[in-house]
């Protein structure tokens, strides 16, 4: 599926090793998150809630803890996405301050929705984004939100299997064959 595909520009003989094996290069001890600052997390939580909102079926990305999934993976499998998250959040916030004088997470739901649609279409003010493709950043957050919301709880999201319950996907997978696991 195209939304899963992230590719890496070939940067020479040593490129692969240096990209893939680079340790987490950001240490920010004041945050309660593994990767995000508290301010960044507040923005991403609001963004994910736009992508998977609470509705008549039940809670959305916030309640499912999608932020925990993304935060955890950004210091693990998705470590190469750290920079795009930092730059994307910063560019989104600058866009919001420019257009509405407020940070993204403090805007009302409908305004956030309009901003997300603009970001998806590449229509937020270009001067805040520089080289960064705003549509690409948003599609990345969409992919990660879907994984966090619809993937298994063991990776930090989909708290208490809430999306599975909303889809009425019953457990166990086969009667009498459940596999319990401890969730950290």
């Amino acid at each position: 599926m195209s939304i899963d595909r992230r590719t890496f520009l070939l940067t020479g003989v040593a490129g692969f090793g240096s990209i893939m094996l680079m340790p987490s290069c950001v240490t920010r001890t004041t945050s309660s998150w593994q990767f995000f600052t508290d301010e960044e997390a507040a923005c991403v939580i609001a963004l994910c809630e736009q992508i998977v909102p609470a509705d008549e079926h039940g809670g959305g990305a916030t309640k499912a803890g999608v932020i925990h999934y993304i935060d955890r993976q950004l210091v693990a499998v998705f470590d190469y996405d750290q920079v795009i998250y930092q730059q994307g959040i910063s560019a989104l916030q600058n866009s919001c301050l420019d257009l509405h004088g407020k940070r993204f997470e403090t805007l009302d739901f409908d305004t956030q929705y309009t901003l997300c649609t603009a970001m998806e279409e590449g229509k937020l003010p270009g001067e805040h984004w520089g080289e960064l493709d705003q549509g690409r950043f948003f599609r990345l957050v969409i992919s990660h939100s879907m994984q966090g919301f619809y993937g298994p709880p063991r990776h930090g999201g989909n708290k208490d299997y809430m999306s599975y319950k909303m889809m009425d996907l019953d457990f166990p997978l086969v009667v009498g064959r459940n596999h319990y696991e401890h969730l950290s």
Partner: peptide
């Protein structure tokens, strides 16, 4: 469930209320 989040009719919005509603109703 996750792969199904990528299955939508042509032109459907890949996020938001409509996307989630489709998921819950149609899997």
């Amino acid at each position: 469930p996750y792969l199904f989040s990528g299955v939508r009719p042509p032109g459907a919005k890949p996020w938001g209320r409509e996307h989630k509603d489709f998921q819950m109703k149609n899997i």
